[in-house]
């Protein structure tokens, strides 16, 4: 966290990441060009780049342009994700502080928790078909678990001194919950958001691989069916890129909301 503890060498710090980044693509291209890896198994970065530009406007052969695939996946992910935050975080926070909430919500939650999210896919197809609703449901089912657990743990980890302090000032249970427990749980909650995001994104691609007619996962599946490694790789790259962008946005929001907690721990 503290920049002073790092060796100061701006030049090499600026240059080395680019060397490994460019090097990765050069080696990849060379492996294909020299025939060490046959073209039928893997596309070269140049081909993927070409396909990327082509797919910006051309819906063939999978039926939609790249932007449509990305937006479909993004919409499914964002809807499911937001639903899991809206339900999971308040639930976890309440469970952490109010005994009644914990008593009521814990048993069903503990029953559902160990089921891997992908196991919901068949039922979701039965219930909702292969459209948007089913995907949103699956993403919600997997995103809600880390939200609840982290919010709950965050509240439970609230310093007893702070709770006592508020109590001696005459704060009510609700005031202690909103003014002490919730803010103090925020870093854990945001940790949960990141975990939920990673889970949601992985599960979404899995769901799209199995049942979809649009979306990045579908693009990958079509690549497999049509024996087009360039489509597969393009789909993979888009999945990674989009996930990375969402992760960064959450990171930024977190830093703004937890200003006092984020500055490298307590001074001694």
């Amino acid at each position: 966290m503290n920049p002073d503890t790092r060796l100061k060498d701006p030049l090499s710090l600026r240059v080395t990441p680019w060397i490994s980044f460019i090097g990765f693509f050069v080696v990849w291209q060379l492996l294909i060009d020299t025939g060490i890896v046959p073209r039928i198994l893997l596309a070269s970065p140049a081909e993927v780049g070409q396909l990327f530009i082509d797919k910006l406007t051309n819906p063939d052969p999978d039926g939609a342009v790249l932007l449509t695939h990305t937006m479909v996946s993004l919409l499914e992910a964002v809807l499911g994700y937001v639903l899991s935050l809206v339900i999971g975080i308040p639930l976890g926070l309440l469970m952490g502080w109010f005994v009644v909430a914990e008593g009521l919500a814990r048993p069903p939650f503990e029953m559902i928790r160990p089921i891997p999210p992908v196991a919901w896919i068949p039922l979701a197809i039965f219930w909702f078909g292969i459209g948007l609703t089913g995907k949103v449901f699956i993403i919600w089912a997997c995103g809600v678990v880390p939200c609840v657990i982290n919010a709950y743990t965050g509240v439970r980890m609230t310093s007893p001194t702070l709770i006592q302090m508020a109590r001696t000032y005459g704060a009510s249970d609700w005031q202690i919950f909103t003014k002490i427990c919730v803010p103090s749980a925020l870093p854990m909650v945001f940790g949960g958001l990141q975990i939920a995001l990673a889970l949601a994104w992985t599960t979404l691609v899995a769901a799209e691989l199995i049942a979809a007619n649009e979306g990045l996962g579908y693009l990958i599946t079509m690549g497999r069916r049509l024996l087009r490694p360039d489509m597969i790789v393009l789909g993979m790259i888009m999945v990674g890129l989009t996930g990375w962008i969402i992760g960064n946005i959450i990171d930024r929001i977190e830093r703004r909301l937890t200003a006092g907690l984020e500055r490298g721990g307590a001074a001694t």
């Binding site: 001194t161 702070l162 006592q164 302090m165 508020a166 001696t168 000032y169 005459g170 704060a171 005031q175 003014k179 002490i180 803010p183 103090s184 925020l186 937890t258 200003a259 006092g260 907690l261 307590a266």
Partner: peptide
Amino acid sequence: AFVFQEPSSLPWLTVSQNVEFGMLI
């Protein structure tokens, strides 16, 4: 009002918000 031996200021509030906290409650 109670002043504890261990630090008890709220890390997410500024100094003045912390001083105001008791009055707010």
